[in-house]
């Protein structure tokens, strides 16, 4: 039963990101060229609503649907890993025109070359796991 919930959420996410064109390489290029408000509108309006919803959940001390206490952990304090990791991610995001969510979505849409990107991303995650002891965080 719980499995169905997550599959439905994922399906909805896939439709929203595809139909908003946030999964389009062209929209990502356009965003980094500052030629259109579209992507900034998506991220900005998601944040405006997201900040309010997160604050409401935190302040009301709402329990989860399963009756557990909700814990939204703070991100670990650091600087280097966020900036360097972020820059590497940004280089790849602009080149692939897709972040991880859209990679799965575009696979479903039938753009098969995205599987090469997804394979590369899995290799990249593996390389991080192997090299993380040697990297500045």
């Amino acid at each position: 039963m719980k499995s169905i919930i997550y599959i439905i959420i994922g399906t909805f996410l896939g439709i929203v990101l595809y139909k908003s064109e946030a999964a389009s390489w062209f929209r990502i290029y356009e965003m980094f060229q500052f030629d259109s408000f579209h992507m900034y509108g998506i991220i900005g309006s998601a944040l405006a609503v997201g900040v309010v919803l997160v604050q409401l959940i935190k302040r009301s001390k709402t329990k989860s649907f399963f009756g557990e206490t909700i814990n939204i952990p703070n991100k670990e304090k650091a600087f280097t890993r966020y900036l360097l990791g972020g820059i590497l991610f940004g280089l790849g995001w602009a080149l692939a025109g897709a972040c991880p969510g859209p990679m799965y979505i575009l696979t479903g849409a039938g753009y098969w070359p995205i599987l090469i990107v997804l394979f590369g991303a899995t290799v990249g995650a593996f390389l991080y796991g192997v090299l993380r002891g040697k990297l500045p965080h």
Partner: peptide, 14 residues
């Protein structure tokens, strides 16, 4: 290369 950058970068950045 684009994929590796995304995968490595995102895990490095958490």
């Amino acid at each position: 290369v684009a994929g590796v950058l995304v995968g490595f970068g995102t895990r490095y950045a958490g």
